[in-house]
Simulated assay, not measured.
Amino acid sequence: MPILLVGAALVILVAVVLMLRSGRHREEMAQRTADAEARLAELVRMQGEMHGRVAAMAETISTRQAELNHSVNQRLDGMSHRLGSTITEQTKSTHENLRKLQERLAVIDAAQNNIQTLAKDVVGLQAILSNKQTRGAFGQGRMETIVADGLPQGAYSFQSPLSNGTRPDCVIRMPNGAPPLIIDAKFPLEAWTAFREAASPDARRAAGQQFRRDMEVHIKDVAEKYLIAGETQDTVLLFVPSESIFAEIHEHFDAVVQRAQRARVVIVSPSLLLLSIQVIQAVLRDQRMREQAHLIQGEVGLLMEDLGRLEDRTRKLQSHFLAAEKDVEQILTSTDKLTRRGNRITSLELETPATAESSAEVAAQKSVESRTGLLRLRVVDEE
């Protein structure tokens, strides 16, 4: 019996314990459920907040992306515009450079054509100078051109005969009855060409001696042919058709130049001949001015007479202006007097305004009656 009681008590105790444990377990389960629900609610709240934040972040990101796209598009547009402008400017610059290059190439082509033409002219000049007859014609042509350009017609002649039967290349007629000036255009170029083209000193020396002899012979012939006392000037011009030849003659052949000066033969280059022609032209101009001096003096006398008449007429006109000025002053004095008198008359008050108005009405009525009477008389007369 006691064992059973003890067993029953143990069973009851175990049941109580189990009941207590189950109650605690339920409380724990309820607490855990409440905690889980609270955590779930918190998670739901946090999830909502997270969704809001994600939505806000997505909206912010989309806004930023739109702004970034707009900024990128603007930058791309600006870069495209700048790139297009740069390409356009570069294209214009390239076209301009190509145009300038074409112009320069055209200038170069023109210069090349000129060089080729000049080379042909040089070859032709060499062919002319290699022939004695053509060389003489070339020197004669240059001399004639210079003379014809500098002097008027009638002041010169070519190949005119002299009293000794010779025909100089050019005869320039001097003013005031002075003898004419003779110009010779021949020049011994063969010896000079040999002197220029000599390769060795001995050949150059021999060519120089030959050129000196030819020049002395030519100077002597010119002096004998063209220096005629009383018929020509006491100086003859020997024309050298090249400035370089003229300079080298004076540099290397001073004895020839001295011999020519003693023979009264002056060696001249194209520039010196032109200067001589200009001097002769000035002399001719002075002669024409002296010839026309008496005409100028007569015209000046007539001009002085006209000037005297103009002075007399100007003085008469001045007297008329003085008289008119006095008349105008008198007229202004009279107008001033009239103005002052009119001002005095207008300053007088002869009637009152009312009386003036009534008198004006009476005068108007009388004027109307008189006009009516005149009309009636006209009608009666017409009838």
Rank of each mutant, 00 (worst) to 15 (best):
M1F: 07
L5D: 13
L5E: 13
L10P: 01
V16A: 14
M19Y: 14
R21T: 05
G23D: 08
G23T: 12
H25K: 13
R26P: 00
M29D: 11
M29W: 14
R32S: 11
T33I: 12
A34S: 08
A36I: 11
A36W: 11
L40A: 11
R45E: 14
G48R: 15
E49I: 07
H51K: 15
G52Y: 05
A56G: 09
E59Y: 09
I61C: 14
I61E: 14
R64A: 13
H70T: 14
R75P: 00
L76T: 13
G78H: 12
S80A: 12
S80Q: 10
L83A: 13
G84F: 04
E89R: 13
E89I: 09
T91V: 07
S93G: 05
S93D: 11
N97V: 07
Q102I: 06
E103Q: 11
R104T: 11
A110M: 09
N113F: 03
Q116V: 11
K120N: 12
V122R: 15
A127Y: 02
A127R: 11
L129W: 02
K132M: 08
Q133I: 07
Q140L: 03
R142D: 11
M143A: 05
T145P: 02
I146L: 13
G150E: 05
G150A: 14
G154K: 01
A155L: 05
A155T: 02
Y156D: 01
S160N: 06
P161C: 03
S163Y: 00
S163C: 04
G165Q: 04
D169W: 00
M174T: 04
M174G: 03
M174N: 05
P175E: 04
P175W: 03
L181M: 15
K186F: 10
P188E: 06
E197L: 15
A199H: 07
A199F: 02
P201M: 00
R204P: 01
R205A: 09
A207F: 01
Q209L: 12
R213P: 01
M215V: 04
M215W: 04
V222Q: 09
V222A: 08
A223E: 10
E224W: 07
E224N: 10
K225A: 11
Y226N: 06
T232D: 02
Q233Y: 05
F239H: 01
S242L: 01
E243Y: 03
I245W: 11
F246I: 02
F246M: 08
E248F: 04
F253M: 07
F253D: 01
V257F: 01
V257C: 08
Q258F: 02
R259E: 02
A263Y: 04
R264H: 15
V268W: 02
S271C: 01
L272Q: 13
V283D: 13
R285L: 14
D286I: 13
R288H: 11
A293M: 10
H294N: 15
G298F: 07
E299Y: 06
V300N: 08
G301P: 00
G301A: 09
L302E: 15
L303F: 08
L307V: 09
L307T: 12
R313E: 10
R315L: 12
K316E: 14
Q318Y: 11
A323V: 10
V328L: 13
L332R: 10
T333A: 12
S334F: 08
G342M: 12
N343G: 07
L348M: 13
L348V: 15
T352C: 03
T355N: 05
T355I: 07
A356P: 00
A364L: 06
V380K: 08
D381H: 10
